[in-house]
């Protein structure tokens, strides 16, 4: 950049250089800072959700643990690994772009897209599972199961429902959010670590109230769907970005001298990965240690 300061005249423009910049260095610097500023706002965007999570988890830890234990940590863990692999292939895309290796770039972009799509596929399986088990927190958005006239329904108190047993399909004619298991409340009550908010929030007249507990679990599922949903939306945007990148890389446009679009898409992709790195333990694993002998 210091070159033009002596002459004080506008320079001849390199190809690929936008009109407002003096040289490629300035352009790359601008694009890179711009992308980081965008990521900062993304962090704050997800930050609002994490605040809501923090507040409600500190108020109702048992409801969150119960809800979390019903998520499938296998799928969640698998998705974490899938995203990490896709991050690696993304990083390698940038690496090969810097080495002007067009074929490896294309392969790496395709791999990244494949892993991204796998992630979304697994997410779909999980969402369908929640739909089938009446765990979507919106009325009418769950599978509707008619009540059978002669079926016997469990009349056990809700804290004796065995949460390790496979989920039983309860009649759900209006597709409501359903939750029957409050064994963790009983456990916390017996061992004396209910929070003050929980002592009010789960009980009616000194008895555990299954409906009140269900409302708190629903808040967990709400946050689960909003957080993973927004994350999935970012993945879809990332896949669109990758498609564009694939076309440009296919033409062999990226080289040692011009690889900013790859680098910037990489930043975005890694950011989405980082969000998931936090979502996985906070959503899938937070109550796992209560499962022993619960």
């Amino acid at each position: 950049m210091s070159s033009h300061s002596e002459t004080g005249k506008f320079h001849y423009h390199e190809p690929g250089l936008q009109h407002q910049f003096e040289d490629m260095g300035q352009q790359e610097e601008s694009v890179s800072i711009g992308m980081w500023m965008f990521l900062v706002q993304e962090i704050m965007f997800f930050g609002g959700l994490f605040t809501a999570y923090l507040v409600f988890r500190s108020k109702y830890p048992m409801a969150f643990a119960a809800g979390s234990n019903h998520l499938d940590a296998f799928w969640g863990g698998l998705n974490t690994l899938v995203l990490i692999v896709s991050s690696l292939t993304m990083a390698l895309t940038v690496y090969y772009a810097q080495k002007s290796n067009r074929n490896m770039q294309v392969i790496m972009i395709l791999l990244t897209m494949a892993f991204g799509a796998t992630f979304l596929g697994v997410k779909t399986i999980e969402y369908r599972d929640k739909f089938n088990h009446g765990l979507v927190p919106v009325q009418g958005w769950n599978k509707r199961i008619k009540a059978e006239t002669n079926a016997e329904h469990e009349t056990k108190p809700c804290w004796e429902v065995d949460h390790n047993a496979p989920a039983i399909e309860h009649p759900n004619p209006r597709g409501e959010f359903q939750w029957t298991d409050c064994s963790l409340v009983k456990k916390a009550q017996d061992e004396g670590y209910l929070t003050n908010a929980e002592k009010i929030g789960y009980f009616s007249n000194g008895e555990i109230d299954a409906n009140k507990f269900r409302d708190k679990v629903r808040i967990f599922y709400y946050l689960y769907f909003v957080m993973t949903g927004l994350h999935a939306l970012h993945m879809i945007v990332g896949l669109a970005l990758m498609t564009w990148l694939l076309i440009v890389a296919w033409r062999g446009s990226f080289s040692e001298d011009y690889y900013m679009p790859v680098e910037m898409s990489g930043l975005y992709w890694h950011f989405v990965d980082i969000v998931w790195i936090f979502l996985f333990p906070l959503l899938y694993l937070l109550g796992r240690h209560f499962m022993h002998g619960g």
Partner: peptide, 8 residues
């Protein structure tokens, strides 16, 4: 940059 995403 730091505030607006939160209102969003």
């Amino acid at each position: 940059i730091l505030g607006t995403p939160v209102i969003a």
